[in-house]
Every structure is written in structure tokens, then in C-alpha cells.
């Protein structure tokens, strides 16, 4: 009984820590992105609110929270509200299967820095990734606007084509690791002393593409396409309800998918112990934010694709590539 209670408390603390840290980072990622975009675009970015504009996310949050939130007259209200939840929940749930470091002992309790170390973690990732599209589709449908509707349909088309590629690209890693548990995959890489990116470079590139597509970043941001669809699926939302969509899609999703890429391909928390006891966590965050930075960098550099090009690339180029990759991996893994 006490065992269960203690486990429950430990899990609760872990949840609070992860939520607090990543929602906070998510908010500050907006500051980082704006600063980065500013410097890429030869301007300053936010600099007036607080030192280096560091209080800008707070100001934005207050602004969004205090704004009047207009709901369209003919909106489907339950679905309209549900869309917000459906957008943010899967993105947060993704963090539950991410291992941030190795097991450690605290007050004689063995603690794994992962919320739930299930042995089907990667399956869960796919499941949550697919669920995320509901937020977009619901918002497009419920707001009863043609722009939003078109945007959400585009997103659906992208997700459908890229979910498949995502699954196949990860399959190679699973074959090598022999497990679906995220901790197990990292352990496998540490035991071999090699990151899976070395064995699976093609899969890594495919995964990056899928990551961009899933998180709706340039060059796959067709569901937003502000020039054509104003801002697409969230055009009828206002206030914090509007703020949740980019937070979930652009920041939380990007972070979570980068973290999973780190686990799958970049050896998770492995790295030389140069920062003392915290070094696994630092390594994990460094790798993860390296990928996040890459995504932001692309966002502020490239133009965007067309919907038909994206699906075409997805089905005609990336899917065959990923299948070939899986087959070759399977054969090689079987022989060795």
C-alpha cells in the first residue's frame, strides 16, 4: 500500500516537473524563436520588455489571457472548445514516454526520470501523434469558416501521408534495438557505444521531414499559409484559445518530437560525464534543442511547399525510401 502511494507521489512529482519545465520552456521558446528570427532577419527581436526582452512571453501570455475571445455565431461550440483540448493534450502526453536520463537513487528509492516507462512507448508516440490531428480538424470544422476548413483538411492530408513514413522510418531503429521501450532503445545505443544515426542515416533524415510535417513547420506549414488562408485552421480563435494552438503545435510538438528523435537516433542522454551528476540531462537537452534549433532555422529560411507537392513527396519518394530502408535493415540485422 505504502509502496503504491510512494510510487504515485513520485509519478505525480515527475509529472509536475515535466509539465512545469516544458510548458515553461515552451513559453520561452517563443521568446527564443522571436529572438532568433530577429537575428536571422537582420533586426533585434523583442528587447523592450525586461532585459533582452526576457519578460516578453509573460507579457504575451497576459495579453492573450485578457483579450476578448470572440466565438463565431454558427460555431459548433462543444467541438470548438474540444479542439483546444485536443490540440494541447496529445502534445503534452508525448512527454510521458521520454526518458531524460539514467536511473538514479534518491532516499533509497530508485527513480527513473521518465513518467511511464512502458514497453510500447514508441507505439504510444505514434498514437499521440495521430491524435494531434484531431485538434486541427476539430478547430477547422467547428469554426465554420472556409479558410479554417481548408487549412484543417490540408493538415489532415499531410498527417495521413507522413504518419506512415514516420512509422516505417522508426521501424529500422526498433529492429536494431529489439525493443519498443524508449529507455531500452537508449540503453541499446549505450551498450553498443554507437548512436543509431550511424546505422540509420536515411531513417533519420526521413524522421526529420516527418517531424517538420507533424509540427506544421516550414516548409510544411500549409495549414497556416497566412498569405492564402489568413492563418488557416485557427483563424476563428481568439485570446488564449488562439495562443494554445501555436504553443501546442509549434513548440510542444516540436520539442517532443525532437526529444524522441534524440532518443531514437542520437543516443538519448549518453555523452561524456563532464558536467558532473547532471551531465546526462544536459546532454539530452543539448541534443534536443539542437534539433529544435534546426527546425526554427529552417522555418525562417525556406519558402513553403504546396499541399499536392507535400503529399506527392510523401507517398512517391519518402514512403518507398523508408520501406527499402526497413527491408535492408531487417536483412542486415538478420544476417549479423
Amino acid at each position: 500500500m505504502t509502496e503504491l502511494l510512494i510510487n504515485l507521489i513520485i509519478t505525480l512529482i515527475k509529472i509536475l516537473v515535466v509539465l512545469g519545465v516544458f510548458l515553461g520552456i515552451g513559453a520561452y521558446l517563443t521568446w527564443f524563436e522571436r529572438k532568433l528570427a530577429g537575428h536571422i532577419q537582420a533586426r533585434m527581436g523583442p528587447k523592450l520588455v525586461g532585459p533582452f526582452g526576457l519578460l516578453q512571453p509573460l507579457a504575451d501570455g497576459i495579453k492573450l489571457l485578457t483579450k476578448e475571445s470572440v466565438i463565431p455565431q454558427n460555431a459548433d461550440k462543444p467541438v470548438y472548445y474540444l479542439a483546444v483540448v485536443m490540440a494541447v493534450a496529445p502534445a503534452l502526453l508525448l512527454f510521458s514516454v521520454i526518458p531524460f536520463g539514467p536511473e538514479f537513487t534518491l532516499f533509497s528509492y530508485r527513480i527513473k526520470p521518465i513518467i511511464s516507462d512502458v514497453n510500447i512507448a514508441i507505439l504510444l508516440v505514434f498514437a499521440f501523434g495521430s491524435l494531434a490531428v484531431y485538434g486541427t480538424i476539430f478547430s477547422g470544422w467547428a469554426s465554420n469558416s472556409k479558410y479554417a476548413f481548408l487549412g484543417s483538411l490540408r493538415k489532415a492530408a499531410v498527417i495521413i501521408s507522413y504518419e506512415v513514413v514516420l512509422g516505417f522510418s522508426v521501424l529500422g531503429v526498433l529492429l536494431l534495438a529489439g525493443t519498443m521501450s524508449t529507455t531500452g532503445i537508449v540503453q541499446a545505443q549505450i551498450e553498443r557505444g554507437v548512436w543509431f544515426i550511424v546505422y540509420q542515416p536515411v531513417a533519420f533524415v526521413l524522421y526529420l521531414f516527418c517531424m517538420l510535417a507533424e509540427s506544421g513547420r516550414v516548409p510544411f506549414d500549409i495549414q497556416e499559409a497566412e498569405a492564402e488562408l489568413v492563418t488557416g485552421y485557427n483563424v476563428e480563435y481568439g485570446g488564449m484559445r488562439f495562443g494554445v494552438f501555436p504553443l501546442a503545435e509549434w513548440y510542444l510538438n516540436t520539442m517532443a518530437l525532437s526529444a524522441i528523435a534524440t532518443v531514437l537516433f542520437l543516443g538519448g542522454w549518453s555523452g561524456p560525464h563532464i558536467f558532473g551528476p547532471l551531465s546526462p540531462y544536459i546532454w539530452f537537452l543539448v541534443k534536443m534543442f539542437g534539433l529544435v534549433f534546426f527546425v526554427l532555422w529552417l522555418h525562417w529560411t525556406l519558402p513553403r511547399f504546396q499541399a499536392r507537392d507535400i503529399t506527392e513527396i510523401g507517398w512517391k519518394i519518402m514512403l518507398p525510401l523508408s520501406i527499402v530502408n526497413v527491408v535492408i535493415t531487417a536483412i542486415v540485422a538478420h544476417i549479423l
Binding site: A37, I40, Q41, A42, R43, V218, P219, D221, A225, A227, E228, H299, W300, T301, L302, P303, R304
Partner: peptide
């Protein structure tokens, strides 16, 4: 034109 096609940075480079 570049902004319309999603290339956000060219816009500011041109305006500079």
C-alpha cells in the same frame, strides 16, 4: 512575393 510563398526572411532583407 516571397512572403506569400512562405519565405519570411526575404521580406525583411528586401525592406532593409
Amino acid at each position: 512575393g516571397a512572403l506569400d510563398l512562405g519565405a519570411l526572411t526575404v521580406f525583411l532583407y528586401a525592406f532593409r
